[in-house]
Computed example of a mutant assay.
Amino acid sequence: MDSGRRGRNLRIGDPEREQAMKLLGEHFSAGRLEIHEYDERCQQIAQARFGSQLDALFDDLPEPRPRTGEPAPVASARPPAVAGKAVLAVGAVVLLVFLVVVARQFGLILLLPLVAVFLFTRYRR
């Protein structure tokens, strides 16, 4: 059985359509498509149900092309690094407020570990 041909005739979902629109946008940005062609093909991508329908829209274009026979890439479950930085920033603000309000006399001494942690995490990259 020809698995490549079978993959072209399988139904597609939203991730495959989104990938195809992204790739079509790259071709538009490169000047290979005029605005009305891009708009028309985007509408056809939105209505496509099979991989072969997507492939037909890229027949006259060079790479990149959608990979309809391959599964769509799955997003990583790992949270972005920005979330860790936000937590560190919020913690630093809370500690700073604590030092200013509660430990007025010892604030400067207690502020040194906060600065050390901040510098360590910043230069650790």
Score class of each variant (00 low, 15 high):
residue 23 L to P: 00
residue 85 K to L: 12
residue 92 A to N: 03
residue 86 A to H: 06
residue 9 N to Y: 10
residue 1 M to W: 14
residue 110 L to V: 01
residue 38 Y to Q: 12
residue 93 V to G: 05
residue 17 R to Y: 06
residue 11 R to Q: 11
residue 97 V to K: 09
residue 48 A to M: 11
residue 52 S to P: 01
residue 83 A to T: 06
residue 85 K to E: 07
residue 28 F to M: 08
residue 39 D to Q: 15
residue 55 D to P: 07
residue 123 Y to A: 02
residue 70 E to W: 04
residue 2 D to L: 09
residue 98 F to H: 05
residue 49 R to A: 14
residue 70 E to H: 03
residue 11 R to N: 08
residue 36 H to G: 07
residue 18 E to A: 15
residue 57 L to A: 13
residue 14 D to G: 06
residue 53 Q to I: 09
residue 85 K to P: 01
residue 19 Q to R: 13
residue 12 I to K: 03
residue 3 S to L: 15
residue 26 E to G: 01
residue 120 F to V: 15
residue 43 Q to H: 08
residue 83 A to W: 07
residue 13 G to E: 12
residue 80 P to W: 03
residue 94 V to S: 12
residue 71 P to F: 02
residue 115 V to Q: 02
residue 54 L to E: 00
residue 95 L to S: 07
residue 15 P to I: 03
residue 56 A to Q: 07
residue 106 F to N: 02
residue 121 T to Y: 06
residue 85 K to Q: 07
residue 95 L to Q: 07
residue 122 R to S: 11
residue 4 G to V: 10
residue 62 P to G: 12
residue 42 C to H: 05
residue 98 F to E: 05
residue 12 I to F: 09
residue 80 P to L: 01
residue 19 Q to W: 01
residue 98 F to T: 10
residue 16 E to N: 02
residue 9 N to M: 12
residue 8 R to T: 04
residue 61 L to P: 10
residue 76 S to H: 00
residue 83 A to P: 01
residue 79 P to K: 05
residue 99 L to I: 08
residue 21 M to D: 08
residue 97 V to F: 06
residue 64 P to A: 08
residue 4 G to K: 15
residue 42 C to A: 13
residue 14 D to Q: 11
residue 84 G to W: 00
residue 114 L to H: 00
residue 65 R to G: 00
residue 65 R to F: 02
residue 65 R to Y: 00
residue 56 A to N: 09
residue 70 E to N: 03
residue 85 K to F: 08
residue 4 G to M: 13
residue 3 S to M: 15
residue 68 T to C: 03
residue 106 F to S: 08
residue 29 S to R: 15
residue 109 I to K: 13
residue 10 L to E: 13
residue 58 F to S: 11
residue 29 S to M: 14
residue 63 E to Q: 07
residue 5 R to D: 12
residue 106 F to Y: 01
residue 3 S to W: 12
residue 29 S to E: 09
residue 55 D to A: 13
residue 11 R to Y: 11
residue 12 I to P: 05
residue 21 M to I: 01
residue 92 A to E: 05
residue 121 T to R: 09
residue 88 L to W: 04
residue 95 L to C: 11
residue 86 A to G: 04
residue 71 P to E: 15
residue 114 L to Y: 00
residue 27 H to W: 10
residue 92 A to F: 09
residue 18 E to D: 08
residue 125 R to I: 11
residue 56 A to F: 03
residue 54 L to I: 07
residue 36 H to C: 05
residue 26 E to L: 13
residue 113 P to L: 02
residue 6 R to E: 13
residue 89 A to I: 09
residue 87 V to Y: 01
residue 77 A to Y: 02
residue 48 A to I: 12
residue 7 G to P: 08
residue 38 Y to E: 11
residue 69 G to H: 02
residue 105 Q to N: 06
residue 88 L to G: 14
residue 115 V to M: 09
residue 46 A to D: 15
residue 114 L to N: 01
residue 94 V to H: 03
residue 113 P to A: 04
residue 48 A to H: 07
residue 78 R to F: 00
